[in-house]
Design a protein around this nucleic acid. Structure first.
Length: 955
RNA sequence: GGGCGCGUAGCUCAGCGGAAGAGCACUACCUUGACAUGGUAGGGGUCACAGGUUCGAUCCCUGUCGCGCCCACCA
């Protein structure tokens, strides 16, 4: 079947993907690889209800390159796919949907109905991202797809929770958390972002006890500065710096808290910076992280001005005053109950102003914590939450990176990792949400906690406990154990769910079947490589390290490749609100998945953000077209793969040369991928395909392919096909679709060893993988995805390199002159006074050179003909007799310029070689190189001089 | 306040100790039997600045100036 004139990705990609899937090409543990070394990667699970964005495209392209590369190198590859339930994000999406459809909200419908609704939404949209990954070409083992809320993974989550609880590494604690007043849940430190905000600094006067407050008399009050005046209701102290002469004498005295009337002490504490604000600071232990610690140091009470039930019955903002001891003023005149915090702030400031208690208000820009999802101001809030003792788990996670069991690429991310790990805070894992893994903790009527893997177990433990403590009698517990309906009121389950990242932290082993001892766990854990963005090093990588080491006693992965962010062409972060999002699927539709993948790989240099422009994608789409047409050319010239062809058997210099170049390129690509240098790998294969194979090899092969030498022709046909096949292999990890398609199209049928070429077969490419061999003599060659990666040895050939290099240089030099002088007609070439070796070469390559440089004739002479343009090619003169065409003055000037350059080169080298220190201290090979450079330049200079002299003769 | 990174051709970026590179854009020529999604040739850079180390610095060190990002309880 002749190859189409242009490659149509849209027609090919889906079909090819189906072929791979039907052949089970991406299955881990294929029987024939039972003895192979495993290679495993777990996918960073995308949000199950999400859709593919450019970050996914980059992330998964890189993983796919590694997986396809290792698969071709014979490894038993497991690319473990799956999706994440993404607690908050998914819950928000569904809630928004309910709102848009004007359906009852989450609270109105209740937990059970709401969860049903989320599962429906998951069923509806959950396949989207998976299909999108397939469109990208991701070679995941889809038969092993997992979801963080699958039965198996949920079992792992519960097991981990219970075990950590029993080990006292998970505990419940009442302390300040980051409370998101919009989502009405606690969030972890990592989910808080600091936003620079323009606000105010209020200077408040707190009257001193025992003095009559007089705004004119500064000795009757102390001024505190605050950015959150409403929290004053919860103040339990005023702090001054113990070394501050202005306030030292007040330490130990009391102030009367305005509006509330509470007496609170003035304490000395280093938290107070005399330089800042007024030098005195209000202390609100229940509403500020710093103040919380001060409160601990000075044993201050914690006055929570929000309702303790806030998480249950608050609407949209933190409710006020539930916890504040009442004062008549607050209760009766201010009406703060249920108010929005910012409304309350205004009311409080207004009231303080009325009472002359506000000294001044300054504009103040400061950083304010916001929820990363809700984007509202976070409220530090004193509640009971569950925590993981991350500090304890971090120890081994730090060691593992320290001693290199896990290594980051690029290495500088290790510092970021260490900095965070070494200062790690308790991880708040409970969320007041519904979508997620519900915490396996049950409470007795007295608040006693029972943590267990199942409710039955919790009940059994509770009954035993209450019997032992005398709360229940033996016969009661017996009865309850027998009759479940009677025990219902005994225990209530914790309503909260776990942070999504808790289940993600288990991903490398939970997806492999843990806690069961599976053969997959045994074979694929620890995984080989993790590929992820730097933005989730803390969220995810660090936590997988901790959990992996704790539960598996081994690191979860050996290498962590950290890639950059994809930004838009001008460097801005892509976001929906900015409208600068480039949809990867739109790119795939327009240019093909291969073009997008290649672009991402080519731009994935370590350590820098990727600014994606569609122009660049277009360029690589063109590259795909180039490859396609090169394959077409081969096809049209009868170049078909020869079974068991050995490129080392090539006799033709040209063929030995392409063997040499192919081997070099293969080595370059291999080493680059091994080192995670995706851009280098992509660059190497690009240059080889376009600038070596297409630009020179195919051009030089043309005369042979249409020439009379049957043996040379047959060898060249085989070699063209061989190099093309090697290209398809080298390019396959980057451009899997077009390469697989070409592999299929060009492989049917193969020419049996030693036979001559006949017309190409016309079999459908679709079934290249599964089709039986076409005939007794033919060998089907299966899928490219499962074909062996090139390991080319013994093909280096410096002699061929030198010879073809000379041809290339000569042709280039002649073309340059032609273009500069605007000569279109065929012209003759005279090689003047060249060595016998060059003479032979020229004879051998005459036809090629004539064709590529458009020459009418090549001849030899002792001297360049008068009126010639004279070129120095590899130290010898090539003359183009252009009498009448050439401008002697211009030619003289050109040669003079060349001469200057030669002189400059010689001078520079001489400066080096004349430097005794250089000769003495530089490495020998460098000195040798310089000497060679000098020799070359001197030779060149002599030839230019000769040419100039010859030119003088004419004038 | 700490940490990380970046300033190289008009644009986007590689290179990171031994004579400045790519893609795109630009200019000229080419409908030559694989490819105009192409070919050939060309213009364009004191590698941010200042010191230092070195025989030699775009590359290493120090500082300065710009620009990002991350972390941090400061009013």
């Amino acid at each position: 079947m002749p190859i189409d004139k242009t490659y149509q990705p849209s027609e090919v990609e889906n079909r090819i993907y189906r072929v791979w899937e039907e052949a089970g090409a991406f299955r881990a543990g294929r029987p024939e690889r039972a003895a192979a070394k495993p290679y495993s990667i777990v996918i960073p699970p995308p949000n199950v209800t999400g859709s593919l964005h450019m970050g996914h495209a980059l992330n998964n392209t890189l993983q796919d390159i590694l997986c396809r590369f290792e698969r071709m190198r014979g490894r038993d590859v497991l690319w473990q796919p799956g999706t994440d339930h993404a607690g908050i994000a998914t819950q928000m999406v569904v809630e928004r949907q309910l709102m848009e459809r004007q359906q009852p909200g989450r609270r109105e419908m209740g937990r059970e109905a709401f969860l049903r609704r989320v599962w429906e939404w998951k069923a509806e949209s959950g396949g989207t991202i998976v299909n999108q990954l397939k469109r990208l070409g991701a070679s995941c083992d889809w038969s092993r797809e997992r979801f963080t809320m699958d039965e198996g993974l949920s079992k792992a989550v519960i097991k981990v929770f219970v075990q950590l609880y029993n080990e006292k590494l998970i505990y419940k604690d009442k302390r300040l958390v980051n409370w998101d007043p919009k989502l009405l849940t606690a969030i972890s430190d990592l989910e808080v972002i600091q936003v620079e905000t323009r606000g105010h600094l209020w200077y408040l006067r707190y009257p001193l006890e025992g003095k009559t407050f007089d705004p004119e008399d500064r000795s009757t009050y102390i001024v505190v500065a605050t950015t959150r005046p409403e929290t004053m209701l919860g103040d339990t102290a005023v702090a001054v710096n113990p070394d501050d002469e202005r306030y030292k004498h007040l330490i130990g005295k009391q102030v009367i808290l305005p509006l509330v009337g509470r007496r609170i002490p003035i304490v000395g504490d280093a938290i107070s910076d005399p330089e800042k604000g007024s030098g005195a600071v209000k202390i609100t232990p229940a509403h500020d992280f710093g103040d919380f610690d001060v409160g601990k140091r000075h044993d201050l009470p914690q006055v929570n001005i929000f309702s303790i039930e806030a998480k249950l019955d608050l609407k949209n903002n933190a409710d006020f005053l539930r916890g504040v001891p009442s004062s008549d003023e607050l209760d009766q005149t201010m009406q703060l109950h249920g108010q929005d915090r910012f409304v309350a702030r205004k009311a409080i400031v207004a009231r303080l102003e009325e009472k002359n208690l506000v000294e001044k208000i300054e504009p103040n820009t400061h950083v304010v914590p916001h929820g990363d999802r809700s984007n509202v101001v976070i409220e530090p809030f004193l509640t009971d939450q569950w925590y993981v003792n991350a500090k304890a788990l971090a120890v081994r996670a730090i060691d593992a990176v320290r001693d290199g069991r896990t290594r980051f690429v690029p290495k500088n991310w290790e510092k970021t990792y260490f900095d965070w790990m070494e200062n790690i805070q308790p991880w708040c894992i409970s969320r007041q949400l519904w979508w997620g893994h519900q915490i396996p903790a049950w409470y007795g009527p007295d608040g006693k906690v029972f943590v267990a893997e199942t409710e039955d177990e919790a009940i059994a433990r509770a009954l035993a406990y209450y019997e032992e403590t005398g709360v229940l009698r033996h016969h009661q517990t017996q009865e309850m154990a027998r009759h479940p309906e009677k025990r219902a009121p005994i225990l209530t389950r914790d309503e909260d769910v776990l942070d999504t990242w808790f289940s993600s932290a288990l991903w490398p082993f939970s997806t492999l079947g843990w806690p069961d001892k599976t053969k997959e766990l045994d074979r694929y854990y620890p995984t080989s490589t993790l590929v992820t963005g730097f933005d989730i090093i803390f969220f995810w990588v660090a936590r997988m390290m901790m959990m992996g080491l704790h539960f598996m006693k081994e690191v979860p992965f050996h290498d962590v490749y950290i890639h950059a962010l994809v930004r838009d062409a001008s460097g801005a972060k892509m976001s929906k609100s900015k409208g600068n999002v480039i949809d990867p699927l739109a790119i795939v539709d327009e240019y093909g998945a291969d073009a997008l993948r290649f672009t991402l790989a080519a731009m994935a240099a370590q350590g820098r953000d990727i600014k994606l422009s569609t122009q660049r994608v277009e360029g690589y789409r063109n590259f795909a077209t180039k490859l396609w047409n090169a394959a077409r050319f081969a096809e049209m010239n009868g170049c078909a793969s020869v079974a068991n062809f050995d490129p080392k058997s090539a006799k033709e210099t040209l063929n030995r040369w392409i063997g040499h170049e192919t081997a070099m390129a293969a080595a370059e690509v291999t080493q680059a991928i091994e080192a995670y240098r995706f851009n280098d790998a992509a660059g190497a294969v690009y240059r080889f395909v376009w600038n070596i194979y297409c630009d020179w090899y195919l051009e030089l092969a043309k005369p042979v392919l249409s020439g009379p030498d049957a043996a040379a022709k047959a060898e060249t046909q085989a070699m063209v096909a061989w190099a093309r096949d090697e290209i398809l292999k080298l390019l396959h990890p980057f451009m899997p679709f077009i390469t697989e398609e070409l592999w299929a199209v060009t492989s049917s049928p193969l020419i049996p060893d030693g036979a001559t070429r006949h017309t190409p077969g016309d079999q459908e490419a679709t079934d290249a993988g599964s089709r039986p061999a076409p005939g007794p003599q033919m060998t089907g060659r299966g899928l490219l995805a499962l074909t062996e990666w090139p390991h080319l040895e013994g093909l280096a050939d410096e002699e061929a390199e030198a010879e073809i290099g000379w041809v290339v240089d000569l042709v280039t030099a002649i073309r340059s002159v032609r273009a500069e002088m605007n000569i279109t007609a065929a012209i003759p070439l005279v090689l003047a006074g060249v060595s016998p070796g060059t003479r032979t070469r020229a004879g051998r390559w005459a036809e090629f050179i004539k064709r590529l440089a458009r020459l009418s004739d090549i001849s030899f002479a002792a001297l360049a003909p008068r009126g010639s343009v004279q070129l120095v090619v590899r130290g010898e003169l090539a003359a183009l007799p252009l009498k009448g065409v050439i401008d002697l003055a211009a030619e003289r000037a050109r040669l003079a310029k060349e001469m200057q350059k030669a002189d400059a080169d010689i001078a520079r080298v001489d400066a080096k070689l004349g430097n005794a220190n250089f000769v003495a201290r530089a490495p020998e090979e460098v000195v040798e190189e310089e000497k060679e450079k000098r020799e070359e330049a001197v030779g060149r200079k002599a030839k230019i001089a000769e040419a100039l002299e010859r030119l003088q003769d004419v004038s």
